[in-house]
Structures are given as C-alpha cells and as structure tokens.
Amino acid sequence: MKRINTLALLLVLGLCYAPAQAQLKGFGIGPYLESGVPVGSFSDAYNTGWGAGIGAIINLPAKLAVTGSVGYMQFSGESNIPDLKAIPVRFGLIFRSLPIIYLKAEAGAANYTGDGADGSAFILAPGVGVRLLKFDFQAKYEAWMKSGTNGFFGLKAGYYF
C-alpha cells in the first residue's frame, strides 16, 4: 500500500512540475479546499473536518477525464479523542453528463499521520461537480475504510490553472 501511495504522490508532484510552456490541451492543475461532515458512528467521535491540497485533471475523449489529488485533511476529536489527521491520495474518473456538470468516482488511500497514527485506510468517493471556467465545485460522499468505515459528506472547491 505504501508503494502505491508513494507512486501516486510522485505522479501528482511530477504533474505539478510540468513546464508551464507545454500547455497540454485539456490538462489542469491547481489548489483546492474541502470540508467534511462526519456521518454515522464517525460523527459520534469527530467534528467537521477541513483540508487542502492540489489536484490535477486530464481530459480524455468521449466526455471522460482522469483526475488525481493529494492533500491534508483533519477532523477534530470530541473531548478526550485525539484529532484524526490524514494525507489522502485519490485517483478517479470523471464523466461529463452535461458541459459543466459531471459525475465523479475516486479511490485511493488516506495515510494517517500525527499522534496515534496507524497505517492507511482505503478511500471510495463518489460525487457530483460543476466546472465553471477554471473553478471547480464538488459535493461527495467519502468513505475511509480500515477496520470499519469513517464516512463523511464533503464539499470541495478548487481552481485549475
């Protein structure tokens, strides 16, 4: 799992350093901010989470695109529960049902960090989004699965160069 995460991180970072003059048609990269509201038993122990990162998108033919992101996400714990901190690495596929509206499915790994960090969780994240010029807004449900599921509804806003 760590080898996959390292390769994913190197891929996203490599895309970040692509020369600006290359101007690959249909390619975008940029920062994003996100929030997540825990649901189910996850909401019993944690409050709203906040995160930031960098994402990339490569447009493909037939209304499809490939996407990837790496970031940092933190959920504050209730009373004596330590905060849950992670570095999520996600890859996915986008289907544009209409010119500005899309459906998205992502998978990846949430690598836990900080005090009491214990490995990684598998990520599944379906969602729907709107792309207006260089701005991207998305609503999703994201599940981090390890020994049980930590699920949350999320909102994500990004800007692609």
Score class of each variant (00 low, 15 high):
Ala86Gln: 14
Ala86Asn: 14
Ala86Ile: 13
Ile87Trp: 01
Val89Asn: 04
Val89Leu: 04
Arg90His: 03
Arg90Thr: 08
Arg90Cys: 05
Arg90Gly: 03
Gly92Ile: 02
Leu93Ala: 05
Leu93Arg: 03
Leu93Glu: 03
Ile94Lys: 15
Ile94Pro: 02
Ile94Gly: 09
Ile94Leu: 15
Phe95Ser: 10
Phe95Ala: 11
Phe95Val: 09
Phe95Trp: 12
Phe95Cys: 09
Phe95His: 10
Arg96Gln: 13
Arg96Thr: 12
Ser97Arg: 08
Ser97Phe: 15
Ser97Gly: 14
Ser97Ala: 15
Leu98Pro: 08
Leu98Arg: 12
Pro99Met: 04
Pro99Tyr: 09
Pro99Val: 07
Tyr102Asp: 11
Leu103Trp: 05
Lys104Ile: 03
Lys104Asp: 11
Lys104Ala: 10
Ala105Met: 06
Ala105Gln: 07
Ala105Asp: 04
Ala105Glu: 05
Glu106Ser: 02
Ala107Met: 12
Gly108Met: 00
Gly108Asp: 08
Ala109Leu: 10
Ala109Lys: 07
Ala110Asp: 10
Ala110Gln: 05
Asn111Leu: 07
Asn111Asp: 08
Asn111Ala: 10
Tyr112Glu: 15
Thr113Ile: 15
Thr113Ser: 02
Thr113Cys: 06
Gly114Phe: 00
Gly114His: 03
Gly114Val: 09
Asp115Asn: 11
Asp115Met: 03
Gly116Tyr: 00
Gly116Cys: 01
Ala117Thr: 07
Ala117His: 01
Ala117Glu: 00
Gly119Asp: 07
Gly119Pro: 03
Gly119Tyr: 00
Ser120Phe: 07
Ser120Gly: 11
Ser120Cys: 00
Ala121Ile: 00
Ala121Val: 00
Ala121Glu: 05
Ala121Leu: 07
Phe122Gln: 09
Phe122Ile: 14
Phe122Cys: 08
Ile123Asp: 02
Leu124Ile: 13
Leu124Glu: 07
Leu124Ser: 10
Leu124Met: 11
Ala125Thr: 03
Ala125Gln: 04
Ala125Ser: 08
Pro126Asp: 00
Pro126Arg: 07
Gly127Trp: 04
Gly127Lys: 09
Gly127Asp: 02
Val128Ser: 02
Val128Lys: 07
Val128Phe: 08
Val128His: 07
Gly129Ser: 13
Val130Gln: 11
Val130Asp: 00
Arg131Lys: 15
Arg131Val: 13
Arg131Met: 15
Leu132Phe: 11
Leu133Tyr: 09
Leu133Pro: 02
Lys134Asp: 13
Lys134Pro: 06
Lys134Gln: 12
Phe135Asp: 04
Phe135Gly: 10
Asp136Trp: 03
Asp136Ala: 12
Phe137Trp: 11
Phe137Tyr: 01
Phe137Glu: 10
